[in-house]
Design a protein around this nucleic acid. Structure first.
Lengths: 167, 167
DNA sequence: ATAAACTTTCATTTATTTTTGAAAGTTTAA
DNA sequence: TTAAACTTTCAAAAATAAATGAAAGTTTAT
């Protein structure tokens, strides 16, 4: 397989993955393209490489910047804007996770808290509902913090040594 | 808020969450409904509660069973089938994570390995591509195993005590 | 064997999401 | 200030995904 083919395959695959994870295909493809480009890329080039319209490119680049995983760059003597992606993968994971937490998990937690606080006066049906949604609340809350925990743990060399030692 | 309203709100919220995470809305709603039902529920009742067609119900229940998070149940003297959801949340998380890994992560890893193995003969552009996709491969591979690691860690009381102690 | 009770399938319809592209907006150089 | 070079917006179109429902399939009781 030669370079161009490999690059294309990577972009397509990353795009498909993105669309299964709630990020739209083009957005993920642009991100993929930028991640493997050593140089910053212009909008024109993105349109050309992905065969997409100006509007589509513009909107999805904007979205990526809102997520904080793509940056604008200026070149001297160039009027156009260029774009680069966050290439540090730990940083990328943290940003994506924070953003999804904010947009999706936090609102869901709010609802879970609400519905688990109803007055379960009588039936076992209602008791079960309250019980189960409370458990869900705790679980989602914990899961939501998992990435922070992992980051902490990664920086904690003593914990790492101890856990390795025990295995 | 009274029970019926709370239940409905929960089902809607869980459904929306599902659709942001690559699971379709109805599938997530059925799962939500079953999770908070103390009794097994018939297809007829699912159709009624969610206001969906027979075909839709059938196909999504089937999908949930394929994921291993919904089970069929039979009642004596009843010809109809009833359904229940996996209610243990750790178990649920493990099953979902395994299934998504199998369906999405593993194929992506395969491609990442492929494209990072091209002969980067010359340009710095090609070198950067190979370098970045290799990093991605390692990263995704590690991330893919995170849940297993957490499960291990949860069962390891000594690790837990030690890490708590250090904080 | 038959028919009632139930479930599954899948071509078609409906709903949702994404993309387009032309017009409006912005910035910069002269 | 003007106009060229560029970016953003958004209504409409296209593409994609999900839902319907009637027909086909299956199971069970008699």
């Amino acid at each position: 397989m030669e370079f161009k083919e490999a690059k294309n395959k990577f972009v397509q695959t990353w795009g498909a993955l993105g669309s299964q994870w709630g990020i739209n295909k083009t957005m993920a493809q642009i991100h993929a393209l930028l991640m493997v480009s050593s140089e910053a890329v212009s909008m024109e080039d993105i349109m050309e490489e992905l065969q997409i319209s100006r509007g589509n490119a513009s909107m999805n680049i904007r979205a990526l910047m809102d997520w904080g995983i793509v940056y604008k760059e200026y070149k001297v003597g160039e009027r156009r804007e260029f774009f680069t992606a966050e290439k540090d993968l730990d940083e990328l994971a943290v940003k994506i996770s924070k953003e999804r937490s904010k947009r999706e998990i936090k609102p869901a937690l709010k609802v879970l808290k609400e519905v688990s606080s109803i007055n379960a006066n009588a039936t076992s049906e209602e008791k079960h509902f309250v019980d189960q949604t409370k458990k869900l609340y705790d679980f989602v809350l914990k899961a939501d913090n998992v990435l922070d925990k992992i980051t902490e743990y990664k920086d904690n060399w003593l914990a790492q040594i101890l856990v390795k030692f025990m295995k």
